[in-house]
């Protein structure tokens, strides 16, 4: 039987994207770590200069010592926002921008990489969704009776090729670790990459600035992914551990919802599910994926 290379099943758009695979700091130097990207088994490590090295794995075991000098057949690698990104195709030169990340007074941190049994696009859509706050993040990001999702704007920016939702507002009991009382929080959501999303929300500490939270999804297979969480916060009092705990609490609440969603791949046919006005950003996202021709992790529209 001829062996089939899993790479052949990946649509060309997805194959050429930069894909996140690890938090740079969590990758050991000179030791092997294993992961899977788009059904392709990978091995990775960091060299003595701290630079990540990534290659397609065969029988390497996690924890084995390795001399990165000996790895010749390497995949492209870049680092950004504290994470390692690679690609199974020919990636564009640069990763999408998050300019705020470079601001000197921000606390930037990874909050762990968590495996979820759902496709990456389903997880992106959950990240864009405000309607679930009172039910899934009860007493933190929302609480009954404040369940209304007010009108907001969505556009697909031609120039930056990303989905953008603005003027999103929601009543939140405890919007951030640093919040002390309920407030109406304003959000901006960006989807600058088919499997990544960045949000900007009102910052309890400084009303002129925004906290930035991003979710980078590593598509492991069509129906599994790993969520790599980034926070870039204006918060002078909380520790990194506090901030991580807050974000993990939130994500831990989304996990059982995502893992109980069917089908696991995101259906792009508008008649597969029932959208409401509050889902405008999700509709735009599904359309954008469709137009791009992404087929990995989605159920494409029957043509």
């Amino acid at each position: 039987m001829p062996s089939i290379d899993p790479i052949d099943h990946i649509d060309p758009i997805t194959r050429d994207l930069w894909q996140v695979i690890a938090a740079t700091d969590e990758l050991p130097v000179g030791q092997i770590q294993r992961t899977t990207l788009l059904d392709v088994p990978l091995a990775m490590t960091r060299d003595s200069a701290g630079l990540p090295v990534v290659w397609r794995r065969s029988d390497e075991e996690a924890g084995d010592d390795v001399d990165p000098e000996n790895i010749l057949d390497r995949l492209p690698v870049t680092t950004g926002y504290g994470f390692v990104w690679t690609s199974l195709g020919t990636p564009s030169a640069a990763l999408f921008p998050i300019p705020e990340y470079a601001e000197a007074d921000r606390k930037n941190m990874s909050c762990g990489s968590i495996g979820i049994h759902v496709s990456a696009p389903r997880a992106v859509e959950n990240f864009l969704d405000m309607g679930h706050f009172p039910y899934v993040h009860t007493d933190i990001l929302g609480a009954e009776p404040h369940t209304e999702v007010k009108e907001y704007d969505v556009e697909v920016s031609e120039e930056r090729d990303e989905v953008l939702a603005t003027r999103c507002r929601f009543m939140q009991p405890r919007a951030a670790k640093s919040a002390t009382h309920a407030m109406e929080v304003e959000y901006v959501y960006r989807v600058p990459h088919p499997f990544c999303s960045v949000l900007y929300k009102s910052c309890p500490e400084d009303e002129n600035r925004r906290d930035v939270i991003a979710i980078f999804l590593q598509p492991v297979s069509e129906d599994r992914c790993r969520a790599h969480l980034l926070q870039s916060m204006i918060d002078s009092t909380s520790t990194i551990t506090d901030l991580r705990r807050f974000q993990q609490t939130i994500f831990g609440q989304d996990k059982p919802i995502l893992e109980n969603q069917y089908p696991k791949r995101l259906p792009l046919d508008p008649r597969a599910e029932t959208p409401i006005r509050a889902d405008k950003s999700a509709i735009a996202y599904r359309r954008w994926l469709s137009q791009k021709g992404i087929t990995y992790g989605v159920i494409p529209m029957a043509s």
Binding site: E26, S110, C111, I240, T241, D242, R245
Partner: peptide, 10 residues
């Protein structure tokens, strides 16, 4: 006292 069990392995 929050302990950074993951990813920090505290």
């Amino acid at each position: 006292v929050p302990v950074d069990f993951f990813p920090g392995r505290e």
